[in-house]
Nucleic acid binder design. Structure first.
Length: 483
RNA sequence: GCUCGUGUGGUGUAGCUAGGUCCAUCAUAGUGGGUUUUCAUCCCGCCGACCCGGGUUCGAAUCCCGGCACGAGCACCA
């Protein structure tokens, strides 16, 4: 039997044990801020597989922490919108963990009643000792009755945070210390730190931790494949132990490694939140931040982001990628439809002498004549040139004429191109004062200049000739996307 | 420290499960050239890699052992 093993694979690796039409995936961010560039990977990979296998994608808010990473109310609106923008369809289901508490309680009770969970009253410090020395803690042998009693104490306010947690009984001899009797639910002070969801607020004192909540919810939702960061590998192992207790089959799993971007480093939502609150940034869509909203506003397309992440695939390597890779994908997406616009920074006015027409018409896009023409007026034979371009005396105004420069005046020497003199861009008399915003080395710079008149609406991605691609963010205001 | 995971050109990525067709794929970056009245797009060329050391084998990027490096988990965060 012959195998076509040497065929080069393209796109994402095959989803293991997947049945077409019967695949359920999920993307589960903490709504403690809007989505970041890093979240895009989870969304793109999971949604691409969902599409490929006629499956479903669940967007799940893992909002069970009110103290360390408290949820941000606007994120519940913003994340679904950003997700839809990025992946091109609405997630099939949206699940909010904080609204599913009764389910988690049900399985916590089941765990206690069946004796594979217990209420542990050891301090964190003490349990750490037990874990490291592979010693069962004193609470491990609690009777079911005592556990139920203590569970009630956790819920009725007898206990405060730190007094007790519910643990999953695994095996204190487990090789991997992370798996030894791991914590499943704990108490939070929801008087002091209420949950921001309406109706949830201070309703519950006992909250599940990620490993428990996620495990139960994946089961309840019928998730077939979990694809997530490899930092959650131990989470899989913990959850698999829980699944064994319950007699459930754990989903197939795949992992990706850590990603950094050369220019940004990591992208922690919590850190961004602190920096914004400290006034270091203007808000979540400050163009310097690696949030999805900032990227979108800067002119990065959803398709470019998708192509970028699919190309990286789901390897477990920790990688650091340059932004130029993303920019290259973006250029491929937008170039063919980006109208050309002339923007002259450091403009100097130059008056032309010689045979000067009253206007010049230039193609909106050199490779697509159907996009029409743009008209550069030449009232008073006046043009604006970039002063840096005027270091040389003999230049050619792009799509117009050869000139010999002399200070603020210039002689038109030929309409036809006569020699190999450098070609520079320019604007005519029908130009406007405009502002170009450039983000460089973590700084926002504003460059004033003259821009040709155009009637492209806000949001249009265009190409500034000899500068780069940009997006119109306001009248006469362009943000440079990239070269 | 314990546990888990990963190591292919500058950066990513394919190939590794079932060893030969791999003097190793594709992309990006860099570089040279062509088209083009943009420093854009497009096209062509060049550059450049299997972490190290053993072993098995006629043959190893692929299997085994041992190093080394990097990352993550060991939270009453997600």
């Amino acid at each position: 039997m012959k195998r076509e093993k040497k065929e080069r694979r393209t796109g994402l690796p095959e989803l293991p044990n997947a049945v077409k039409g019967n695949v359920v995936l999920r993307f589960a961010p903490n709504p403690n801020g809007p989505l970041s560039f890093g979240h895009a990977r989870g969304l793109v990979i999971n949604s691409t597989y969902a599409k490929e296998w006629d499956g479903e994608l669940i967007l799940r808010f893992d909002d069970t922490d009110t103290t360390v990473k408290p949820p941000l109310p606007i994120a519940y609106q913003q994340i679904p919108q950003e997700a839809e923008w990025l992946i091109g369809f609405k997630p099939h289901r949206i699940v909010i963990a904080s609204e599913r508490m009764p389910h988690y309680y049900e399985y916590a009770m089941k765990m206690l009643n069946e004796g594979f969970g217990y209420v542990c009253r050891c301090s964190g410090e003490d349990f750490k000792q037990f874990r490291e020395s592979k010693t069962p803690c004193p609470c491990r042998d609690n009777s079911v009755e005592l556990n139920i009693h203590l569970w009630n104490n956790m819920n009725d306010g007898t206990f405060v945070p730190g007094d007790a947690v519910v643990r999953v009984k695994t095996d204190m001899e487990m090789k991997n210390p992370a798996l030894r009797d791991w914590p499943a639910l704990r108490i939070q002070d929801t008087q002091k730190n209420p949950h921001p969801r309406e109706g949830i607020g201070s309703k519950y004192k006992v909250w599940p931790l990620l490993d428990f909540q996620s495990a139960v919810e994946d089961y309840l939702q019928g998730v077939t494949h979990i694809i997530r960061g490899k930092d959650l590998m131990d989470s899989t192992r913990k959850q698999t132990l829980l699944y064994q207790h319950f007699g459930w089959k754990y989903p197939e799993t795949m992992y990706w490694g850590r990603v950094k971007v050369h220019e940004w480093g990591g992208f922690s939502t919590s850190q961004m939140r602190r920096d914004i609150e400290a006034g270091l940034f203007e808000g979540w869509n400050d163009p310097r931040l690696p949030t999805l909203s900032a990227l979108k506003e800067r002119g990065i397309t959803a398709q470019a982001l998708r192509n970028f992440w699919v190309e990286l695939g789901v390897t477990q390597k920790d990688i650091s990628v340059p932004l130029s890779t993303l920019y290259s994908h973006n250029t491929k997406e937008i170039d063919a439809s980006a109208p050309r616009v002339s923007f002259v920074k450091n403009p100097i006015q130059v008056s032309l002498s010689g045979e000067c027409p009253d206007h010049v018409s230039i193609a909106v896009h050199p490779n697509d004549k159907s996009m029409g023409l743009r008209k550069f007026e030449l009232n008073n034979n006046s043009v604006y040139l970039n002063s840096e371009d005027c270091q040389q005396n003999e230049v050619r105004l792009k799509d117009f004429c050869d000139i010999n420069l002399d200070g603020s005046s210039a002689q038109i020497t030929s309409i036809e191109r006569k020699d190999r003199r450098p070609i520079i861009h320019w604007v005519g008399s029908n130009c406007v004062d405009a502002e170009l915003i450039v983000v460089e080395n973590g700084e926002i710079m504003s460059i004033a200049g003259k821009m040709e008149n155009h009637q492209h609406p806000i949001g249009t991605m265009l190409q500034l000739e000899r500068i780069g691609y940009g997006i119109i963010v306001a009248e006469n205001k362009i943000v440079l996307t990239h070269d």
